[in-house]
Structure formats: structure tokens, C-alpha cells
């Protein structure tokens, strides 16, 4: 059966490398459906990723795609967007990729408010390398490098993005693919730096080490730990520690970096001379 998905994938690249039950495929589907809704020209879409399971997404989609180095997807994308602001640039990252090795690039992309859409697949673990804890692994959970439990406090990536200056910030989950699709669509459509964190499952690494052996267990867990933004606001501080809010947190208008640079070009040319 051919679906809308088939219009956007490189069929020769399948089957994909992801484990059975992995949430990455759901996110891939959500991204494609969002793009299809927007009816964008495939020739003008660039998808950039870093390193990790999630970053393989760029290999599967039929756009101009780039699987770059670990954590660096955003600065590569920044160069592309600066060079040709007509291109629609989507950046797909994992939680470790974006918030650990790429954390600095993430806050600076948000600070500049450059017109990119960052989609972070947050499975709360380094899946590809075998389940080491990441900056988004919740405190107390287990990883192959946290055999006695994780003592780190995790980032709230959405709060971080808001504080750093992003224009659009939202969180969805692979348990709610329709909502995720619409959040991604809003993000893509937004001028400026837009961020969508999608909480996803890694049954093989995270699940195995945290007593959720099947993908179904993991999805149920994701359902349990997430609440709508509205519900979350009514929770006590202690209750909030156990939950993730989902939905749209911020959508504001602020000039995007490439537009601001066009102003610089005008100023420089008005001043004239070659000095």
C-alpha cells in the first residue's frame, strides 16, 4: 500500500537500521506528514542531522540531506541557511547529540533566532552506543554508565530553548503522533528558531535497564509521565518532578537572523567604499 510517506522516502535505504519498537520511525512519519501538509518543494528542503540513531533519519528522506558530526548539526545548518535563506532547513537531533556535545550550539542557535527547525528525539539515553546516560536521563534512572542510578539533574530542554531565545518551543511524544505532527508543522511554519522535543522510546537500551522490556511497556510509561501543559500548571512542585508537560509552550514573533543580516548588507552597501 502506497501512502503519503512513500512520496518522501528513499525506498532503496529501507529496511532502516532502527530496532523493532523504536520511536524514531514514528517521528519520521510525523515529520513527513507535517511537510506534506505544508506542501513544500522537496528541492528546497534541507534536512541536517548529527550522530546517533535519530540522525539516520536524514538518510531516509528524499530531500537535500546531511548526516554531519556529533552535536554539530545546528552550526552546519546555520551555514546552509545563511548561504541560502530560501531553503527550508530542518535539523533532527537526539538528546545526547543536542543537549550534551551540541548543547552550546543549541543555545546559540536559539539566541540568534536563526530560521531553523530543530526536532529533538528525546529517548533519554545514548541508544546507538549501548545505553549510556545523557543530560536528559531522569535522575535516579539507570544507564550502562549509571549502573547505580543517575545522580545528574536533567535539562528541561524546552525551558532551555525558551530562556535562550527561541521563537517556537513545544514538546510532544511518540505516544501522541498526531499531536506531534501538528507541533512539528507549527514549528516548520514558524519564522525563527523553532524547537520541538519529542519524547521517544528506546526499548533496547533505556527500557532494558529501567525495567520496561517491551516497546508497549515503554509507550505506556511515556503516557504516564506526560500531561498536558494545562494539567502540568496545576501540579505541585513535587508532582512536577515526576511529569513532563506536553504541548506548545511558546510561539512569538522575533526577527530571524537571516532577515537581520539582510539589513546589515543594506547598511554596508549604503555606506559604500571599500574601506
Amino acid at each position: 500500500m502506497k501512502t503519503v510517506i512513500n512520496n518522501y522516502i528513499r525506498e532503496g535505504m529501507f529496511p532502516n537500521i532502527w530496532c523493532p519498537g523504536c520511536g524514531n520511525g514514528i517521528v519520521l512519519g510525523a515529520i513527513i506528514r507535517a511537510i506534506d501538509d505544508l506542501n513544500w518543494d522537496k528541492d528546497k528542503i534541507v534536512a541536517v542531522s548529527g550522530i546517533g540513531c535519530s540522525s539516520r533519519i536524514t538518510g531516509y528522506v528524499d530531500f537535500c540531506t546531511m548526516n554531519t558530526t556529533h552535536g554539530r548539526a545546528l552550526p552546519f545548518a546555520t551555514g546552509i541557511k545563511m548561504a541560502n535563506p530560501d531553503l527550508k532547513v530542518i535539523v533532527v537531533m537526539g538528546d545526547g547529540d543536542c543537549s550534551a556535545i551540541g548543547g552550546n550550539h543549541f543555545i546559540h542557535a536559539a539566541r540568534r533566532n536563526i530560521d531553523l527547525t530543530a526536532i529533538i528525539i528525546n529517548n533519554m539515553i545514548y541508544g546507538m552506543t549501548g545505553g549510556q546516560y545523557s543530560p536528559l536521563t531522569p535522575t535516579g534512572k539507570f544507564g550502562s554508565t549509571a549502573p547505580y542510578g543517575n545522580i545528574d539533574q536533567s535539562f528541561d530542554l524546552c525551558e532551555l530553548a525558551i530562556a535562550a531565545g527561541a521563537s517556537y518551543v513545544a514538546r510532544g511524544t511518540v505516544y501522541n503522533p498526531r499531536q506531534s505532527t501538528s507541533l512539528i508543522k507549527n514549528a516548520l511554519d514558524k519564522k525563527g528558531f523553532s524547537v520541538v522535543e519529542i519524547i521517544s522510546d528506546c526499548p533496547v537500551s533505556y527500557g532494558k535497564m529501567n525495567k520496561m522490556k517491551s516497546p508497549v511497556d515503554m509507550l505506556k510509561w511515556i503516557k504516564d509521565i506526560t500531561v498536558s501543559k494545562k494539567v502540568w500548571e496545576g501540579l505541585s512542585p513535587d508532582e512536577k518532578k515526576e511529569k513532563y508537560a506536553i504541548g506548545e509552550f511558546l510561539s512569538k514573533d522575533r526577527p530571524d537572523y537571516t532577515e537581520l543580516y539582510e539589513e546589515i548588507i543594506k547598511k554596508a552597501q549604503e555606506r559604500g567604499g571599500n574601506k
Binding site: 546531511m66 552550526p75 552546519f76 546555520t78 551555514g79 546552509i80 531553503l87
Partner: peptide, 10 residues
Amino acid sequence: AAVIGASIAG
């Protein structure tokens, strides 16, 4: 990274 990105974009 940005230099490489810009070069790929022409």
C-alpha cells in the same frame, strides 16, 4: 561546520 554548510549551499 558553518563554513562547510555554506559551501554546500553554494
